[in-house]
Simulated scan of single mutants.
Amino acid sequence: MIPLNKAVTENAGEALENDSSFRPLPSNGICTRLGDKWTVQILWQLSIVSGRRLRFSALNRHIDGITQRMLTMTLRNLERDGLVVRHYYPEIPPRVEYELTELGSGILVALENLNLWLRTNMHYIDECRRAYDKAAV
């Protein structure tokens, strides 16, 4: 069983209800984008090379299983949302590099907190899944 402090949970819920600044997440597609299979992996890869840019081929090489088409589509969406900037160099052959924008770097703080929460609570989630699957049989 998950050890939850009921008083803390109830107080947090009351605080959110009484907080006039609290708003549910907007359905503007950003949450959907962050929840897809590839976006976070691309953002992580671009964050590893802080201050540098990555070429398309380097991203493709470092993200297992992503197709060129999916990488292209995801990068375009990230560029559209302002999280990534594309640098085009009209050389022969043409060179394209990608880097995180300030906005893109900012989302990494939230993702790092989510990652910490997942690592802290994954054993509870696994326990709940096992209990649910056992009861469903």
Rank of each mutant, 00 (worst) to 15 (best):
V40L: 09
D126K: 14
N28K: 02
K134H: 11
P24E: 13
S105F: 01
W44D: 15
D19I: 03
L75Q: 03
N11W: 08
S21E: 08
H123C: 11
I48K: 02
G65L: 01
R76W: 07
V40M: 10
S105E: 03
E91V: 15
S47A: 07
R33T: 12
N18T: 02
R61L: 14
G65H: 06
R129L: 13
N11F: 13
M73A: 10
K6H: 12
F56G: 08
G104V: 00
K134M: 08
E91P: 06
L59Q: 03
F56R: 12
L108A: 01
E112C: 04
G82M: 01
P26T: 05
M70W: 09
Y124S: 14
G51D: 05
R130Q: 14
H87S: 02
I125K: 08
V40S: 11
S57G: 05
L78K: 01
E91I: 15
F56Y: 13
G35D: 06
L16A: 14
E99C: 00
E112R: 04
A135S: 13
L78A: 02
Q41E: 15
E14Q: 10
M1K: 12
A131D: 14
N121T: 07
V84R: 15
D81I: 00
T39D: 05
Y132F: 14
S27R: 08
L43D: 06
P94H: 15
T67L: 06
P93H: 07
G29R: 03
R95C: 14
I42H: 07
L78I: 02
Y98G: 00
T120Y: 03
L16P: 11
R61H: 15
